[in-house]
Design a protein around this nucleic acid. Structure first.
Length: 872
RNA sequence: GGGCGCGUAGCUCAGUGGGAGAGCGCUCGCUUCACACGCGAGAGGUCGCUGGUUCGAAACCAGCCGCGCCCACCA
């Protein structure tokens, strides 16, 4: 290590992430470590397709967690020597872009309709050029090792080809079709949205009871509704066939108030006789349930609410052009004037709202494109059922299967402009329809002009192709696809399990003949610290970018991993802090080692790594090497099984509580003495620990690694990012050393506790002796760590801890000691009694496993011995 | 209406059958030559409630209470 570097290391007592991270990121990018070759097979290689963030989005906590997890997995596998590809890209996010641009247009006093389709799309592309990459830059700051050289976009040229190929094939198979059917109309975005984008909210409305006259009678039939405005589209009244009250009326007619339409009275089992009056107004045009009744009885389907959210001409002259809310008022007033309202009462029920625009959904019948799902779902059910695709945590598997087994047709057309325009052309002259990957010239039947469908596809239609479309499908020559498909794992939150994950499984199987990924890992959803949802509008959001600015990317990454769980979690600032503390401690422990551990005497013996192998000499060396193996085993197992919290905390525990608290303290004298063997061991452990930690905290470990390499005189550009990931070396496991050193640690703790209790000065060294010289524990280290001097031979012991006896001196207050001994005696008596009781229980002795009983006997023996000692 | 999950130390959470754990916070003591983002010691839990299974239950079973979330076309 050169003098300048050494001086910097010496002077920097505190790790400064902001000073380090940009520099390290540059080196990773320049080194091309994130850009693997398209070689090898998917079985040997490792790949993840990132859930493409919307072009409109800024990095939020969900991305941060999700990105950290994926990055940890990618880095782990890259270090294992596998070609590891993390496919990056963004989603065109049709509705989100519309919302954003239309807001801008409104501010400018115009609208997309005034602007026109072409100009609007141009504007959207301009927007994407300008802002679309911000999320990508933010992912870099997190340390995400995506392949930034292969970034994709769901509207790029190749991707569009994939989307059109899929549409045409599904059309040819008869899965995609056009139909008049009940859809969720979002007045806010003036488009259809899918069932999955509808959110039901509890709302209290007024339930009106309205009297419909019965034809040729003075009687009335009273129906109940919360939406009187839809009565204009009523085409029947239904009663339950078993309802005695109405049996005689079935087949007769009512007269629709305000309109005068004759409504047949039909019998249908959907009607609950218990609800309201037991008579249901049937509005097939505006209620999904009523549509089913209507189709069963061949009823007319009238639509009175238009796509602009206003009443159509069908609603009658009086109401045409009114908004739904205005029509509601006008109709109630009119009914009241006619004396038709029999009751009004508050009624709480769930009402559909658009997840996108927040507006109340208008169910209406509309001509749209649909995709039939049952055939696609069947194999996608099968692969999850048989665990060909494993879902973790597994409780989500059942939810997935349940949803898939009840899957319904998917409305895929949207009345928007930004997106994949439907590859469908119509001939107005002869009403032919053409579905093709590229535009046909003219109508094949009559030679007429063709007109392309105005609608675009649901954004999720293109997202469903993500894992294979990003790898080059449908090109004949797609080397990335060969090398990296199927991907290994998909990491996402559960809110898009159906919207996205399920559809990828279906499309993947349909178009590639293989599943898109082997594993699905469902992450926690991070809530605000108070347990509420993190949201901008509630003001509960915490911005990961700010957290990175303040604490560093490693701190945020560690914190998020430590927080992650099989269920939703509250954001924990303390865990982020813990990550920051860890980075700082890693830095400082490394300073201790690198500034003091000279292996010059052993130089030239490095094999493979940048430092010579470990040189265990004493029990503590064998102990820490053995403990390191345990940590490697646990961290690796936890990462591989998607238990990130335990991986992070195990790393922290090993490094902090074993390596720093004990081993470094124990070996300091040897280190300062320039012992080359302990220096070699320390450097080797440091290298292993850095590599073990790297997938979780890449920046600080990479930074320290540059110093480690410099200290070892290593040359070249080799970086930790591609360092072999540590593997358990069975030869380094040493149970005897573990037992021995742990005994010394326990002994040290006991002495320290006693010192604290009896109030001796922290710095004072107490006279002590070893009762039995044959005792195995290395009392030398206890002496130093507990500040004892084993040089006094004579005198009566004040206290004893196993073989170690503490002798009287002016530092110790004898009264305190007596009190302490009395307390300890009480504790021991309790313990002895507890153990005796347990062992005298015949049930326990005969039924419990032998080792449990044996352990209990040993405890009893130990306690009795100590008690005798104190009493003797 | 169905489904999933949660209730453990002041806070956030681990802990799936053998003596209650971590981080933060709190108390006491330390300018111990890597780190005060530090070091040492400590206090603090009838493991939601009630029954059951078991030699033994925080853990398994049943019921109850409280709290989330998802799915669902009862006006």
């Amino acid at each position: 290590m050169d003098a300048e570097r050494r001086a910097r290391l010496e002077a920097t007592t505190r790790y400064e992430p902001s000073e380090v991270e940009g520099r390290i990121l540059e080196r990773w990018l320049e080194g091309g470590y994130f850009h693997p070759p398209s070689e090898g097979t998917a079985a040997d290689n490792f790949s993840i397709a990132i859930p493409p963030p919307n072009v409109t989005s800024a990095l939020h906590m969900g991305h941060a967690l999700n990105g950290t997890i994926q990055d940890a997995l990618i880095r782990l596998n890259r270090m294992r020597g596998r070609n590891s590809l993390w496919v990056l890209g963004t989603d065109h996010a049709s509705i989100a872009v519309h919302a954003l641009l239309e807001k801008e247009l409104r501010a400018e006093g115009t609208s997309r309709y005034e602007l026109g389709r072409e100009a609007f799309i141009e504007r959207a592309w301009a927007w994407r050029e300008k802002y679309g990459s911000q999320i990508v830059e933010q992912l870099k700051r997190l340390g995400a090792s995506c392949d930034y050289e292969r970034e994709r976009f769901t509207l790029d040229e190749g991707y569009v080809r994939a989307v059109y190929r899929v549409f045409v094939r599904l059309y040819e198979k008869g899965y995609i079709y056009r139909d008049n059917y009940m859809v969720n109309w979002d007045v806010g975005s003036r488009s259809v949205i899918s069932d999955l984008e509808v959110e039901n909210r509890e709302v209290t409305d007024t339930l009106y009871s309205i009297a419909y006259s019965i034809e040729d009678s003075d009687e009335v039939l009273t129906v109940a509704t919360v939406r009187p405005e839809t009565m204009l589209a009523d085409t029947a009244v239904a009663v339950n066939p078993t309802d005695q009250r109405y049996k005689a009326l079935i087949g007769r007619h009512c007269v629709l108030p305000l309109v005068g339409r004759r409504l047949p009275i039909v019998a249908d089992e959907h009607v609950d006789p218990e609800f309201g009056t037991g008579a249901l107004k049937v509005t097939p045009g505006h209620d999904p349930n009523d549509l089913e009744i209507g189709r069963a009885h061949g009823l007319e389907e009238v639509v009175v609410i238009g796509e602009d959210g206003r009443m159509t001409a069908e609603a009658g002259e009086r109401f045409t052009g009114l908004t739904v809310a205005e029509a509601h008022e006008a109709i109630v007033t009119a009914l009241r004037e006619e004396g038709r309202i029999r009751a009004e009462e508050p009624f709480t029920h769930s009402v559909p709202f658009s997840h996108r625009s927040g507006e109340r959904i208008e169910p209406l019948i509309s001509l749209q494109w649909f995709c039939r799902m049952d055939e696609l779902a069947a194999p996608a059910i099968e692969v999850v059922d048989r665990d060909r695709v494993r879902i973790t945590p597994e409780q989500h598997k059942r939810v997935y299967l349940e949803w898939m087994r009840n899957i319904r047709p998917w409305c895929i057309s949207r009345q928007l402009w930004w997106g994949h325009r439907l590859p469908v052309w119509y001939c107005d002259a002869c009403e032919e329809t053409y579905v093709a990957e590229s535009a046909p010239e003219r109508c094949g039947a009559c030679g007429g002009e063709l007109r392309q469908d105005d609608d675009v596809l649901d954004t999720w239609f293109s997202s469903a192709l993500w894992p294979f479309a990003t790898l080059g499908w449908p090109d004949e020559d797609a080397p990335l696809l060969d090398a990296y498909y199927p991907t290994d794992v998909l990491v996402t939150a559960r809110d898009i399990l159906f919207l996205w994950v399920a559809r990828m499984v279906m499309m993947g199987i349909e178009f590639t003949g293989d599943v898109p990924f082997d594993d699905v890992y469902i992450t926690s959803i991070i809530q605000a610290p108070d347990g509420r949802r993190m949201s901008k509008s509630l003001g509960t959001g915490i911005d990961p970018r700010q957290e990175i600015d303040m604490h560093g990317a490693d701190a945020v990454r560690f914190g998020l991993l430590a927080m992650s769980s099989t269920q939703d979690v509250r954001y924990s600032a303390a865990k982020i802090q813990q990550g920051g503390d860890l980075a700082n401690k890693l830095w400082n422990a490394s300073r201790l080692i690198l500034l003091n551990a000279s292996t010059e005497a052993l130089e030239g013996q490095a094999a493979g790594g940048v430092v010579p192998g470990p040189r265990p000499v004493r029990a503590e060396d064998r102990w820490i090497l053995s403990r390191l193996q345990g940590a490697i085993e646990a961290v690796t197992r936890n990462l591989d099984s998607y238990d990130f919290a335990h991986a992070a905390l195990e790393l922290y525990r090993f490094f902090w509580s074993e390596l720093c608290d004990w081993y470094l303290e124990i070996v300091k004298p040897r280190l300062y003495d320039g012992d080359p063997e302990v220096a070699a061991t320390l450097r080797w452990i440091l290298e292993q620990t850095l590599a073990l930690a790297h997938p979780m905290v890449p920046f600080v470990t990479e930074e320290i690694y540059t110093y480690l390499r410099a200290a070892a005189g290593a040359e070249g550009p080799h970086m930790l990012v591609v360092h072999p990931f540590p593997e358990v070396d069975g030869a380094l496991l040493d149970e005897a050393a573990e037992r021995q050193v742990e005994a010394s640690i326990e002994l040290t703790r006991s002495v320290r506790r006693w010192r604290d209790l009896v109030g001796v000065a922290p710095g004072s060294v107490l006279p002590a002796r070893v009762a039995d010289e044959d005792g195995e524990p290395p009392h030398e280290l206890v002496a130093r760590l507990a500040r004892l001097a084993f040089d006094a031979a004579e005198g009566e012991a004040l206290a004893s801890f196993g073989q170690v006896e503490i002798l009287p001196s002016e530092e110790v207050d004898a009264t305190q000691v007596r009190r302490r001994i009395a307390e300890r005696r009480e504790t021991l008596r309790g313990e002895v009694e507890r153990a005796e009781r347990k062992l005298s229980n015949q049930g326990f002795v005969s039924s419990a496993p032998a080792e449990v009983v044996e352990a209990e006997r040993e405890k009893l023996t130990t306690y009795r011995a100590e008690l005798e000692e104190l009493e003797g």
